[in-house]
Amino acid sequence: MRTQVGIIGAGPAGLLLSHLLHLRGISSVVLEKRSRAHVERRVRAGVLEQGTVDTLVEAGVGERLLREGLPHHGIELRYAGTSHRIPFEKLVPGRRITVYGQQEVVKDLIAARLAAGGDVRFEVEDVALHDLETDRPCLTFGGARLDCDVIAGCDGFHGVSRPSIPEGVLSVHEREYPFAWLGILARVAPSSEELVYTRSERGFALHSMRTPEISRFYLQVPAGARVEEWPDERIWAELKARLESVPGFTLATGEITEKGVTPMRAFVAEPMQHGRLYLAGDAAHIVPPTGAKGLNLAVADVRVLTDALAAYFEHGSSGPLDGYSRACLRRVWRAQHFSWWMTTLLHTFDDDDAYARRLQLSHLDYVTSSEAAATTLAENYVGMP
C-alpha cells in the first residue's frame, strides 16, 4: 500500500489532519489502535478556543458544533468568599470559547472522513515506524506495510511515534504537579451559565458543562488518588464545600455517570520532528488542563502541518516543513506558561505557608481588579491569534 501521509492516531489531531489534507488534494491513511466506539466515547477536553471553532467550521465539520455547542463570553473566578467575572466580550471583542466535548469533535471528524471515502483503520495492532531518515519512510502493522512520503505522529503521549525517534535527538522538558484532578460527568443541568474556577483552602474546583443537561466537574485531589476512594456522596459534599462559597449559589446534584482521575503534568519534547516524522498534539506536548489548552494546541499544530505539507506536495517547497517545529513551539510554550500560571494561581500546594497563600490571593485580587491583568487572562484563554 502507498499514501502520501501516513497518520498514526485517530484522535482530533490525526483525524483533522487527514481531513484538511483531503481538502487540499493530499492522500492519507489513518491508523488507530483502539476501536471506533472507544475513540468516540473517550471523554476529554470540552473547551474550544475561537481559532479551533473557526478551523472546524472552515473545514466543513462545524455544523453540529454551531448547533449544539455552548458559546461562552466569560468565566467566573471564585476565591475568599467573592465572585468575579472575566468578561471576554469586553476584554477581547469578537472572541469567545465554545463548550463542545472532544468526543463530539471526534464523531464529527470520523463521519466526515468516512463520507469522503477516507481511509481510517481502527483496531490496528503492532504499528511500527521505519526509515524515518530517508525519503521513503514506511509504517508496518498487522503484517501489512504502508509506504509514505511523510509520517505524522498524532498518537498521544503514550503512543509509538515519539519513542521511535532515536535517543538523544529530543530535548524533553517536564514537570509533575503534587496533585491530580478528579473529573466527573453528571446528569444534572449546570448550576452556572459559565465556567466557574474556584480557589479554596480545601483545594481547587471547577464547574463546567457539556450540554444543557450534562455537567462536568473537577476536584483537586492528592496525587495518586484512586477513584474508589471517592464515592458519589463524598464527591458532591466536597464540590459543595468548595463551590458554594458565595452568597446565593446552590450546587445542583444528580446522577454521576462517569468519573476518573487525571495526573497533572507538563511535558514538551523538542524538536517536534525528525527526518520524515512530524509530531502533533499530545505526542509532542502535554499541559495541565487548568488552561484548557490540550485539544486547542493539537488543532494549532495540525493547521501549521497542513500548510507545510501543502507547500511540499503542491510546490516542492520544504522550507515550511523544515520550520514546522519552530513555528509550533512558540505557541506551545505560550500555552505552557499560561497553563502553569492558571494552575499555580488556583490550586493549593502541600508546602504552602501563610506567605505563599497571601501572595496567591494578592495575585487573584490583581487579576480581578486590573483590566490589563484580566485582559491577559482573557486573550490567553480564548486563544492567541
Rank of each mutant, 00 (worst) to 15 (best):
R121C: 08
P231N: 05
Y197C: 05
A354I: 02
E32Q: 09
L91Y: 06
R303C: 05
A284I: 05
W340Y: 11
A128H: 06
Y278A: 03
H363E: 13
L21A: 03
L359E: 12
L239H: 11
H173R: 09
F141H: 10
R42G: 01
A152F: 04
V287R: 02
T140Y: 00
R136T: 15
P212H: 07
E123Y: 03
A111G: 01
T55S: 14
F88N: 05
W333F: 15
R162T: 04
L65G: 08
Q360N: 13
R34T: 05
R265V: 14
H285I: 03
L277E: 01
L309D: 13
E32T: 09
R41G: 14
G260C: 03
G62K: 00
S192C: 13
F249P: 06
T306G: 03
W236P: 04
D322T: 14
T55D: 09
L377S: 04
Y278R: 02
T376Y: 15
V150K: 11
D54Q: 13
E76Q: 08
E89F: 10
A308H: 01
P137R: 01
P263R: 08
T253C: 12
R42E: 15
V39Y: 09
Y278V: 04
P137W: 04
V127S: 00
I75C: 08
E123G: 01
P385N: 12
L364F: 10
I86T: 07
V246I: 06
E68K: 11
G294P: 02
R276P: 06
D131Y: 01
A269T: 10
V160S: 07
G69N: 08
G153S: 09
T198Q: 13
L182S: 13
F338Q: 06
T82S: 11
A372E: 15
R96A: 06
L243A: 07
G94P: 01
H72A: 12
K240W: 03
S200Q: 02
G319Q: 15
W181T: 07
T134W: 08
A311Y: 11
A152P: 03
A45R: 09
Q4E: 15
I235T: 01
E76Y: 08
R78Y: 04
L109C: 03
H38C: 02
L251S: 07
L305F: 06
R330H: 12
R85H: 08
G6K: 05
D54P: 04
G74R: 15
K259E: 01
I8Y: 05
G275A: 07
Y312E: 06
I256E: 03
L146H: 01
F141I: 00
A292R: 07
S317H: 14
L251I: 11
I256L: 05
C328Q: 10
T290S: 13
I86S: 04
P320W: 10
V61L: 03
W236I: 03
H274M: 03
P231W: 06
Q103V: 00
Q360A: 13
R85I: 12
P320V: 09
G81K: 07
H38P: 00
R199W: 14
H285V: 04
F217L: 08
R358E: 15
V382L: 02
H158N: 14
Y218P: 00
G69Y: 10
P178R: 07
L295I: 15
F249A: 09
T343Q: 05
H130C: 06
D155M: 09
A205T: 05
I214Y: 06
W230F: 09
R113Y: 02
Y100S: 04
A186H: 11
S192N: 12
N296Q: 02
H347K: 02
